[in-house]
Nucleic acid binder design. Structure first.
Length: 822
RNA sequence: GCCAGAGUGGCGGAAUGGUAGACGCAGUGGACUCAAAAUCCACCGGGGGCAACCUCGUGCCGGUUCGAGUCCGGCCUCUGGUACCA
């Protein structure tokens, strides 16, 4: 009697067993080797999407594989639950962000459970729960005490019509996404984390993360952007000075004008009466320009003369001071000494406004004439027009001019980072309240620890206009000053949601701890995360912030590691019809429908089989069919063989036929390949392909062989089930049980590899003539070079290509290839 | 623009510098069936040849090498990130 493969029933059976027995609950066990496996937690947007299915399927393979191999695996799941979409939904549907988020979590948790993922659900957390965000407030205050959280003024996107701050993604073509009004830049006092204090360490440690993809490390290094240069003071004619940062102090003698960021504090001060109107208009225009466009190389360089001058400290010459749209306030000092001959942007700017050019670096064997130049010369060369520094190379001049500036007290060598401090203030409701109070007498006052947490109130109104709903809620806003007791008001900004995701992996170690943010003993046991898995889109921001937080919490005494994630796997995106799945493109595949039709095992199998994890995955509905067919085929095969498997003993190697030995070789080669593909490369697609090949081989063998090979069939089928367990756990568990085993498949461990059984008896050697394939010969495993050569030169096909030619050289790659060069 | 990736049959993909296209999908032919579905078997990059086999072929151009999909240089196209999407 053959039983049909019905995934729905099997999956329900095993999922309820896992839940009932709490199979994946873990505690600290000093006698076992720990393995902390983590996938990036999802934003509860409503339903899981294929990106989640892929991410969590990958993680589950690793988790189950490590458990079977004897590790004490921590594999938690939770919700990145604060954020803008909840607030947008509240405005649109008149629901409450808390309700919306909670319902989404309930639904999505069900979806994840339906996928059969091996999480320790007892550790689940949601960042919008008071039991999570309250501790973040405490961390914030500790950072404030250390000077790592501070306030300064900065610019935000502002819609004057909605009277609200806009996220970058809410700005479409320079206009507000809701009302299309032109967005402007508004200056606000905001909270920052001093990530730049850790810039050097964050950079240095990238050299000590061998488990991270090199490309992510490169992106992080570039993002931090360390550069060595000088700060130089340019005296103003009317007193005072402008400080610039430059990495090209070798071009100092060629600086003919000064460019300031339009937002520079000196900009208005330097504007003379006759230039004032023009300056104001220009600043207003720049405020309305998209930041991204503004820094693009092909964006029109524009500026305005302030009417004031400063002095070049090297030449003593007057330099007109301009405001320029390509100079950014938050890089360096917000002021640039302009050297049009040796910087392309300055060159374009100088040509546009007819500013003077002076060449100070000459390329080898060429004479630069300012009037004839069509582009700046940015390469090294020989110094000219530079006083005492003439004649030396510009590279040497870099060091010498730096020394000279320091000696003359006109400037100093500095290190500059591209990395800016992390602005975390959000003028939004659905986030963690920043625990501060503003008092007219006492100023900015931290909420005392005994008064924590600041609870996010629920009785608010959502209109999408007029700024943060918190700022309009009197019961929240009004508070007595903790220092003087006089009426004061609360901070109404909430934290960037990147803050929550910067330490959730630490909280998982002790998610029910009530004595503080972290239980250091448990954190000590579990950290660091041995394997982190998530989308490549987080290569810089989230991963850099999480590294920063880990270092801060280390310095606060909570954590004993320098880096949070030992190994990182960045998965590609899920694509369909050549584009990222999105509602607007109508190319979304719903995991529910997929699981309903084929079951979770097939959904998992396909998302792992279709591509290696780090590459984008192109979704193909028919490919899913193929995976489902494979499972059905194997199901049927196992059922046909069940009577043999249930009664057979161990394989007697001496009694195997040639065919049987060959099949056994395939079994053990497959064990070796699948183990390596999972453990070393995370190439699940090739691991699955190898198991498919094995199943094909068993199929072919079973069809033509007599029953005395029962023991071999048992070994082959049981190995197949064990190898497939991490990919299709319900399927493997069920068949394992049917094969007569009690107590679950994990008890059996990972199949052991027998090198002797996998050893080849003969080898195929490829013969090339001048690098082109001309023949194939089969030799015994122990054949030496001479006998391989002899066999090759006896091969008809090879001889045909050697006709009348003398071999000049013969290259032999042992056991693989022979190349005859003629 | 800048930073980082990717590009291989009709499609997804495979290939420690060593047989290009494993495995799967689609397709074609056959078996089974009254018929269809399912299943099973065979074929399956282009051109040439009755065939053995020859030849071209991994986005484009060049280089290194006995040998390049793989390494190096220069392009083209697409994707991710670009600091308030997460």
């Amino acid at each position: 009697m053959e039983e049909r493969y019905s995934p729905a029933a099997i999956e329900e059976k095993w999922q309820s067993r896992w839940a009932h027995e709490k199979s994946f609950k873990v505690t600290e066990d000093p006698n076992k080797q720990k393995y902390y496996l983590l996938e990036m937690f999802p934003y509860p947007s409503g339903r899981i999407h294929m990106g989640h299915v892929r991410n969590y399927s990958i993680g589950d393979v690793v988790g189950r594989f490590k458990r079977v191999r004897g590790f004490n695996v921590l594999h938690p799941m939770g919700w990145d639950a604060f954020g803008m979409p909840a607030e947008n939904a509240a405005i649109q549907n008149k629901s409450h962000p808390a309700k919306w988020t909670k319902e989404n979590i309930e639904y999505m948790r069900g979806q994840l459970k339906r996928m059969g993922l091996s999480y320790d659900w007892d550790r689940e957390l949601a960042t919008c729960d008071l039991s999570y965000y309250r501790w973040e407030q405490q961390i914030f205050l500790e950072m404030y005490k250390k000077g790592l959280a501070y306030k300064k003024s900065s610019f935000v996107n502002w819609c004057p019509s909605c009277e609200t701050v806009l996220a970058n993604e809410q700005v479409e073509d320079g206009g507000c996404w809701r009302c299309d009004t032109t967005v402007t830049q508004k200056e606000l006092e905001q909270w920052f984390f001093r990530i730049t204090a850790y810039a050097e360490e964050l950079l240095q440690c990238t050299d000590n993360l061998p488990g991270w993809p090199e490309r992510v490390l490169v992106m992080q290094r570039n993002w931090i952007g360390k550069s060595l240069g000088c700060e130089i003071d340019f005296p103003l004619e009317k007193g005072g000075a402008i400080r610039v940062f430059t990495t090209r102090q070798d071009t100092l003698f060629g600086a003919t004008f000064m460019s300031l960021a339009p937002e520079h504090p000196l900009a208005l001060e330097l504007a003379t009466a006759e230039q004032r109107a023009e300056v104001d208009a220009f600043i207003e225009k720049v405020k309305q320009t998209d930041k991204l466009k503004r820094t693009a190389d092909d964006f029109e360089k524009e500026g305005v003369f302030t009417g004031s001058y400063c002095i070049n400290p090297a030449t003593g010459e007057r330099m007109p001071i301009y405001l320029a749209n390509f100079v950014l306030l938050d890089y360096g000092t917000g002021a640039v000494m302009a050297v049009p001959t040796h910087d392309q942007r300055d060159f374009e700017f100088a040509r546009k406004y007819s500013l003077p050019l002076r060449v100070v670096i000459q390329p080898e064997g060429e004479l630069l004439e300012p009037a004839a130049m069509t582009a700046a010369y940015t390469e090294p060369g020989t110094m000219i027009n530079s006083g005492d520094f003439n004649g030396i190379s510009s590279l040497e001049a870099k060091a010498k001019i730096a020394d000279w500036l320091e000696k003359k007290a006109k400037g100093c060598k500095t290190v500059n980072f591209r990395l800016r401090d992390w602005g975390i203030s959000r003028q939004r409701y659905w986030g963690n309240p920043i625990p501060f109070i503003y008092c007219d007498c006492c100023g900015t006052v931290p909420v005392p620890e005994k008064d924590l947490p600041v609870v996010l109130p629920l009785d608010v109104e959502f209109t999408g206009e007029g700024g943060s709903p918190l700022a309009r809620l009197e019961s929240f806003l009004k508070v007595d000053c903790p220092l003087c007791g006089k009426p004061a008001r609360r901070e109404t900004d909430t934290m960037d949601t990147f803050v929550e995701s910067s330490w959730y992996f630490l909280r998982y170690c002790c998610s029910d701890f009530t004595g503080g943010p972290l239980d250091t003993e448990k954190v000590r046991y579990w950290m660091a995360v041995d394997q982190y898995i998530g989308g490549i889109e987080h290569a810089v921001l989230h991963l850099l912030y999480a590294r920063f937080f880990t270092k801060v919490l280390r310095d606060l005494g909570y954590v004993n590691v320098d880096e949070p994630f030992t190994n990182l796997l960045t998965q590609g995106m899920v694509i369909k019809d050549g584009a990222k799945m999105s509602k607007s493109k109508g190319n979304v595949v719903d995991p529910n429908a997929l699981i309903e039709k084929y079951g979770a095992d097939t959904a998992r199998l396909f998302s792992l089989f279709a591509a290696p994890p780090e590459k984008d995955l192109d979704w193909n509905d028919q490919g899913v069919d193929g995976c489902f067919r494979f499972l059905n085929r194997l199901w049927k095969l196992v059922h046909e063989l069940l009577p043999k498997i249930q009664t057979a003993g161990a394989v007697d190697v001496a009694k195997l036929s040639d065919d049987a030995r060959a099949l056994r070789r395939t079994v053990h080669k497959t064990i070796r390949k699948v183990t390596a593909d999972i453990d070393e490369r995370f190439h699940f697609n090739t691991a699955i392909a190898a198991v498919m090949e094995l199943v094909n081989a068993v199929h072919a063998f079973a069809a033509k062989n007599s029953p005395e090979n029962s023991a071999l069939m048992k070994e082959a089928i049981e190995s197949t089930l064990l190898l497939l367990y991490p990919f299709v756990p319900h399927f493997s568990e069920e068949l394992w049980e049917m094969a007569g085993h009690k107590g679950g498949i994990e008890a059996a461990g990972w199949p052991s590899f027998d090198a002797e059984a996998a050893a080849d008896e003969e080898l195929l050697i490829v013969v090339q003539v001048n690098g082109k394939l001309r023949g194939r010969i089969t030799v015994s495993v122990d054949a030496d070079e001479e006998s391989v050569k002899a066999a090759a030169f006896a091969d008809d096909k090879v001889l045909g290509h050697l006709e009348g030619k003398t071999p000049r050289k013969v290259i032999y790659v042992p056991g693989k290839l022979l190349n005859v060069v003629v």
